[in-house]
Design a protein around this nucleic acid. Sequence first.
DNA 1: TAAATGATATTGGTATGCCAATATTGGCTT
DNA 2: AAGCCAATATTGGCATACCAATATCATTTA
Lengths: 240, 240
Amino acid sequence: MAERLYREIGESIKQEIAKSNIKVGDKLPTERVYAELFGVSRTLVREAFIMLEIEELIEVRKGSGSYLKNNLSLKANNKVSDVGPFELLQARQEIESSIAACAASVITKQDLQKLQDILDIESAELEIVEKANNADRDFHLSIAQATQNTVLLDTATRLWDMRDGNPMWKKLHARIQDTSYHDQWLEDHKKVLVQLRKRNAEGARQAMWQHLENVKQTLFKLSDTDAPDFDGYLFAQPNS
Amino acid sequence: MAERLYREIGESIKQEIAKSNIKVGDKLPTERVYAELFGVSRTLVREAFIMLEIEELIEVRKGSGSYLKNNLSLKANNKVSDVGPFELLQARQEIESSIAACAASVITKQDLQKLQDILDIESAELEIVEKANNADRDFHLSIAQATQNTVLLDTATRLWDMRDGNPMWKKLHARIQDTSYHDQWLEDHKKVLVQLRKRNAEGARQAMWQHLENVKQTLFKLSDTDAPDFDGYLFAQPNS
DNA sequence: TAAATGATATTGGTATGCCAATATTGGCTT
DNA sequence: AAGCCAATATTGGCATACCAATATCATTTA
């Protein structure tokens, strides 16, 4: 529980909008109306409106009212949890290796230093799962950031959000924590950094590709040997 | 102006966090502290916190406090309209060429036929801008679909939504409609399809890369010659 | 001494009230 | 009758005050 109330109100408002026949550009009921409708204070409705505003669903104009900005049906709430870990890994292998190649040619000394720092943390905190995980994510996303292309960073972030929000992945990854595969991956990361230092685009692409190939193989073995409950998530197996 | 104050406060708080040495997981100063610091009411700070919470930057716990959830520096600006056309094209070049390579090895006969049909439409309706545009999108997204990887399709769709929702891109693209660059691009598309038919991954990658390179060059010329208002959107130029 | 407990402080949660910007209305002028 | 303008209503913006959950700490008790 402990869901924040403004989120609930926000979702309720979305439903109300969906039920009504409000079109894009139309004016919404006022904050006061929703407040009375839901039996809460206007403050809460206002907070919910802020949420919808940030989601670019509505536009708020002082003294005038609030207006529907985007079509609610295009929300495209991708069921993150429906994506299999291997399908996601396959996509990451394609995209992140390209990102690594792209980063290699434009990466700055500061970025390289930052990556080195992250690797230091990673090797120091290797046994603390939480920390190692964060360092892992930081390493990959920092490379995306080094491309100086916000779209690439945005895309990579999205892929990692998919991973972290995926229950299947958590289940799979939980099995690894005892083993020492993190060592292997740390070595992979180092190899990637070496290529980035050399500003070798194809080398970086290859190193990142191999790294994610290793991750795929590792997880595949684990899911294959003692996890029959991953059937149906294997359609995008390694080396497809 | 008319910027909503809570956004300003939110950005200020981000700066404060950046200046401080608060790490992920650490507790942030309380709402009251920020309120006094900025000389505003706690309500506003609270609204700013909601914004940061939705951005998944912080986590708010009742009675306890607010905590840094994600690394501030890795947060991408998801403001679609803020992304320059060339930055987006650069990302598409990286990602879509990888997608083409991936598709080449798993593409089905049906997919190939579908692509052929789209190209037929494209060449038939070449002069009808709207139709040509749709066919263009269909061609690219169908390739993504051919990978049989929903994450890749989702990513590609996202990139095209960014394009179509971008006012700058519309402005740029409007200049093309009179010219016959679509011919060139149709030829590019045909070359991509040839490589896909051969199931030549590297060939498909190269063809798609070259296609988007051509698009970049074309748009770059146009923006360079008679569109001084695209300054600031060119930081991700071709061949960076 | 250490664990349990209850009082107190801290912190986010919610409601109410007034302010400022905008929209609407009604009367006046032409 | 049409258009302008002022009075008024509507609506979101912001601040203050009090509530509830959590944390902290002093006291008690085994």
